[in-house]
Amino acid sequence: MSLNLLKWWQTIKVSWVKYTAYRLNFFLQIVGPVLVFFFIKYNLWSAIYGENPEQMIQGYNLKSMVTYHIWSMIVTMIGQGHASYNMSEDIRMGRISSYLIYPFNFWEFHTASFLSFQFLQLFISGVTIAILVAFNFVELPSTYFLFHGVLYTLFISLFWFTLQYMAGLLSFWLEETWILRVLMGIVTGFLSGYLFPLDLYPDWLVSLLQYTPFPYLTYYPIKIFMGQPSPLWIGYAMIGLWIIIGATINHLIWKKGIKLYTAAGM
């Protein structure tokens, strides 16, 4: 293995040890999303459908609505599970100083930790979906769609990572970036199909959204998992494009920001 790959691999291993350092926390990570799902989303939709679970709301009966939201949960777990809010704190408090000294770049370190987290998250999602399948809440799609669903969602996670990294880097200028993150979360929650299937929205909005990354973040992968084919390449191309744009912007922000960095409190 090349020396640089060894650095990545060791960082992934160490991050893995860090993420699993606390057993209770690890356990909650598995159980948490499922509990939230049942207490909030399942109950909400059961109440909406009421006595008549077979009625159609924009083409969804209760069962398919539940299926949609289960996959939405899985997509969020894999795609958006990683939170890098530590990064802005690290920049503000001057904790990135040590990373600036290591002969392994800051972005490499963070990306490696992200990958490590994704291995963990993939495992947790696997367990979650296995439980839900075992209790007959949802059916697995064909191997083809399952494979593409997972692959595509991992692709999305890379996009989210790029975006979160950007929010983190803005800490070179801003005192607080959490408000940015909250806004980002709310807007995407609505526009990506996480809260409601996009089919519930007016047509003009849906066709407008086609040109933004939003529908490709949640709605699109859910459809793949539900085995409802749409041309796969469009999603990959859209997200790939946005990742490249985001990474380029990040590179520029980093170059400007690092000149401003004062390593406060070191």
Partner: peptide, 8 residues
Amino acid sequence: LLLQRFYE
């Protein structure tokens, strides 16, 4: 161990 890799 991580630093060992970083510094080769």
